[in-house]
Simulated scan of single mutants.
Amino acid sequence: MSEHKITATSRKDEGKGASRRLRHAGQVPAIIYGGKSEPKSIQLEHERTWLLSQQEWFYASIIDLDVDGKTEKVLLRDMQRHPFKQRIMHLDFQRVSANEAIRVAVPLHFVNAEKSEAGKTAGVVITHELNDVQITCLPGDLPENIEVDLSTLKPGDTVHLSQVKLPKGVEVPELRLGADHDVAVVMARFARTETEETTEAAEGAAPAAAAAAEDSDAADAAADEGKGE
């Protein structure tokens, strides 16, 4: 597990007005909560934090958060963004304990698809049904991502959640709920061509046209009988 350190400072002013002033000053209001300590209001430099937020690890790694020279291990639990500006409005960090399991959404990295039979077969489309997965583990076992090796993928294959190789100490709680929760992660299927879709559409339209013609003939016959009367 890589180490990531972020520097912040404590703040005493709270409320919407204080947060607005912080943002105007180029700072991001945030809070640390959880564990045996009281919640703590902090602030971070916005430009630096914005750059960090572009990194995948920022959302699924234990962070060493240095607040006024004292470091706490935390996880990012929530980020509020401005609706249309490139601006972080607020951050929530949760303290973690080395001996307590945590639940985190970790990104999936798909590798070696181009080396697989499916990847080398013309007309086969490989789709990723999941981009991340919820896991539980101790903080020391938290991976920044989980690799899904697709080197043996063949046309028609489906890779399920239970088939993903997990790092040591990592579990997927979803799998404890039964086979219905063993969802597809990757699928390799032949793409339907435009010709096939056109043919199927035409075949489907033919019976409908025939039925419409029969209904029309029946209506004409009924009208003729009515005139005869």
Score class of each variant (00 low, 15 high):
Lys70Tyr: 02
Ile6Met: 09
Ala205Phe: 07
Ile31Leu: 08
Asp78Pro: 01
Glu171Trp: 01
Ala25Pro: 05
Ile146Met: 00
Cys137Gly: 09
Lys36Trp: 02
Gly228Glu: 06
Lys5His: 00
His24Asn: 05
Glu144Gly: 15
Gln43His: 11
Ala25Cys: 03
Val164Ser: 05
Pro29Leu: 03
Leu76Lys: 14
Gly119Leu: 12
Ile102Lys: 09
Val148Cys: 13
Ser10Thr: 15
Val148Asp: 14
Ser162Tyr: 10
Thr152Cys: 09
Arg103Ala: 10
Phe190Tyr: 14
Pro107Ile: 11
Val133Leu: 10
Ile31Lys: 00
Ser116Tyr: 04
Val125Cys: 02
Pro173Phe: 10
Ala208Met: 15
Arg87Ile: 03
Glu174Asn: 15
Val170Ala: 01
Met1Tyr: 04
Ala211Ser: 00
Ala222Arg: 01
Ala219Pro: 00
Ala30Thr: 06
Asp78Arg: 14
Ile31Thr: 05
Phe110Cys: 01
Thr198Phe: 00
Thr199Cys: 06
Ala118Ile: 12
Pro29Thr: 03
Thr7Leu: 06
Ser151Leu: 03
Asp132Val: 08
Ile32Leu: 02
Asp224Asn: 11
Lys154Asn: 11
Gly169Cys: 13
Arg77Tyr: 11
Asp224Leu: 15
Asp224Cys: 09
Leu153Gly: 08
Val164Ala: 03
Gln134Tyr: 02
Lys12Asn: 11
Glu56Lys: 10
Gly156Asp: 01
Ser97Met: 13
Glu144Lys: 13
Ser19Asp: 02
Glu38Met: 05
Cys137Tyr: 15
Val183Gln: 13
Thr152Ile: 10
Asp149Ala: 12
Ser97Phe: 11
Ala211Glu: 14
Leu76Pro: 14
Gly228Asn: 11
Glu229Phe: 06
Pro143Asn: 09
Asp157Thr: 06
Leu177Gln: 12
Trp50Gln: 07
Gly17Gln: 03
Arg21Tyr: 02
Asn99Ile: 03
Ala205Gln: 12
